[in-house]
Nucleic acid binder design. Sequence first.
DNA 1: CTTGATGCAAATGGTTTGCATGTTT
DNA 2: AAACATGCAAACCATTTGCATCAAG
Lengths: 156, 156
Amino acid sequence: MPTPAESVGSLATVARTTVDVEPLLEALRASGAKITTARRAVLEECARAEADHLSAEELTERVQARYPEVHLSTVYRTLELLERAGLLTRVHVNDGPAAYHFTADAHHHAVCDRCGRVIELPAAFFRPVTRKLEVDYGFVASPTHLTVTGTCASCV
Amino acid sequence: MPTPAESVGSLATVARTTVDVEPLLEALRASGAKITTARRAVLEECARAEADHLSAEELTERVQARYPEVHLSTVYRTLELLERAGLLTRVHVNDGPAAYHFTADAHHHAVCDRCGRVIELPAAFFRPVTRKLEVDYGFVASPTHLTVTGTCASCV
DNA sequence: CTTGATGCAAATGGTTTGCATGTTT
DNA sequence: AAACATGCAAACCATTTGCATCAAG
């Protein structure tokens, strides 16, 4: 498990742990899936994108820069596989296409109604509320997908 | 001209404040919009649905029970108008169609990943977190649209 | 060599739009 | 009468699927 404490000290934004795709591929293989060019490439592009949340189409473009024969529909199938495997998390920040990021890189989103800007919030941010959810309703909130809409500082 | 107020609610089913559509229509008119059969009917069906979150298509079916000529695309246009006017709030609980409810009836949603069940949470539930959002990020959370995903009590 | 993965094209589902016509103000 | 709203069909966009072929195990 990646410790959030790894981003110690620095004043910079998010010191994000660079994801190594090999263990992920290994996990896939262990689950009976075959390792293909497309699957490796999709994971690598996700790793390269780091903080960005890429849509299936954006991901396809980037993958095709190296492997032009990889088809959009394959990327969709790959993303579905990776999501079911728990490696990627799908996120709907606004209307339009879904976006993906590594599940291990847990965080939430605050999306501005006006400018569309997305603020990433640390996973722990919603702790008080999710605990209350569990106590009051027996509902166990996912630590990786929570979206608030509202108005960001520069749009108020 | 549509049928006037038949909203003399007896037979009360839900413990929710019954919404009176007349003031809402008045607000619309005040903003320069014209009052039409479709607009009145959409608001009335929203009021009748109370707790349910209806999609554009469901809403259209219900409206058509009384006014068969009202077209799906008109309902979409009406919903967009009502949302822009701040009267309705659009919500994406899961994949599939968006759903709508009165903005005045503020609440949030906890959606179960497994069974799709939707728990409605009181508007005040997220208070501590939204305040922190404002303090830390200057982000003013909308009081009407916040969705948590996770696993509900009966699916754990 | 067997099973699963891919490319492609065509279908799908939700939503939007162009335009001629009809309705509200 | 002017401005706006509607019905309808057709376009649109993100995503999914059927099927013949191909590659990983």
